[in-house]
Design a protein around this nucleic acid. Sequence first.
DNA 1: GTGCAATCTGAGCGCAAGCTGAAGGCGAGT
DNA 2: ACTCGCCTTCAGCTTGCGCTCAGATTGCAC
Lengths: 222, 222
Amino acid sequence: MSARVLVIEDAEAIGAAVSSALRESGYEVQHRLDGRQLETDLGRFRPDLVVLDVMLPGRDGFQLLEVIRRSSGAGVVMLTARDGVPDRLRGLSGGADDYVGKPFVLAELVARVSAVLRRLGRTPSTVQVGDLVVDADAGVVMRADRPIELTATELRLLVYLAAQRGRVVSKTQILTAVWGYEDYDPNLVEVHVSAVRRKIEEHGTRLVHTVRGLGYVLRAEE
Amino acid sequence: MSARVLVIEDAEAIGAAVSSALRESGYEVQHRLDGRQLETDLGRFRPDLVVLDVMLPGRDGFQLLEVIRRSSGAGVVMLTARDGVPDRLRGLSGGADDYVGKPFVLAELVARVSAVLRRLGRTPSTVQVGDLVVDADAGVVMRADRPIELTATELRLLVYLAAQRGRVVSKTQILTAVWGYEDYDPNLVEVHVSAVRRKIEEHGTRLVHTVRGLGYVLRAEE
DNA sequence: GTGCAATCTGAGCGCAAGCTGAAGGCGAGT
DNA sequence: ACTCGCCTTCAGCTTGCGCTCAGATTGCAC
């Protein structure tokens, strides 16, 4: 059910952070420090998407990109230096599906990975819960065919909850997925959940359920 | 069927406590005081997961972590000093799947070990008993396709019983696994078992069976 | 059947978890 | 420079979970 993501990143700290953020968003993740066993990984792990650093020991990101394109249908998100405009062009022209410049916020990378997977049809782009429709690609939320105005943060929060629909997600998970934070500030999440509720639960129906001591779930009324 | 866990911890008392807690949760456990024969253990015992102390005589946890990563697909949960933020980063960056800060509650460690094993696909994340489905990862319990609202404690209790399905577990085992307690308070367990029953056994069916003098079993009607 | 121990369960209390209105701060747009 | 809207912090309030206790009930030994 959940998509598989292969992360190739030689900076261990970054690779680990990326991996755990993706895992917390529900993906199955493998992390490699270089592209040596890429062919094997493509065959065995069969990733739906590869997060690929440009600067790598041995074969660099662009060479690996070609390998992936030749022997797999996996999507590719490249990590490049923020200012490296040439890198960016080269990556896109080489066929990467998206790229993210370093330094980046974890939430941004996760969002782009999700977006590419959706585009590739690996993940549904719109999620329906009750009479609420969340279209992550279009960034539009509708309730009973009427559009709902959400702020950027509220939208990211709701899109995340929608992607995890039916699962209980902790405030910690939400913080890393939506904000990219590591420090624990439950109230920040509470405030925004409260705001989202005010907007999407107009008729006394409950969509975002609180599970005390665990977190929140997005689910239609039972 | 049951997963194998290797515990490397030089403090004997802690190692023993961890080992027996894991055994009570149904894992096959080996305990070593240092990492000298790690390579042999990886080959012979073939653990699915290694619980690894950071501070060890001889090679320390991070060195052992590398060995494990190179020559095994085992998951790794590291034990670090609670405040050791540097440790934490280093552990994750080295590729540990999770870490637990000392001092820790046994229940927490057991929960994290289970979570990592699930993520690695070594343990099914959902257990079905009769028409009851317990999804530990999603934190969701369904009966006949309808979600059941459980509190955090009730869920932990039921997840534990589900993991031990078909096996009689004593109140002492439940206390250590779910609460991390050492002192014996049978009534505490009884109260929560009672609450879980009220919620999951709506039609007079019995799922959590009492075995007088021994404990409880989760099992479909006999 | 009788007695005793084990188990069940309803009630209530204390407190941590969660909610929300208000206000400050910051950045974007004019 | 000013305005506007959004994000975040804070503080007081509310909620309901988890624990303890006590009386009822069950099951087993004899």
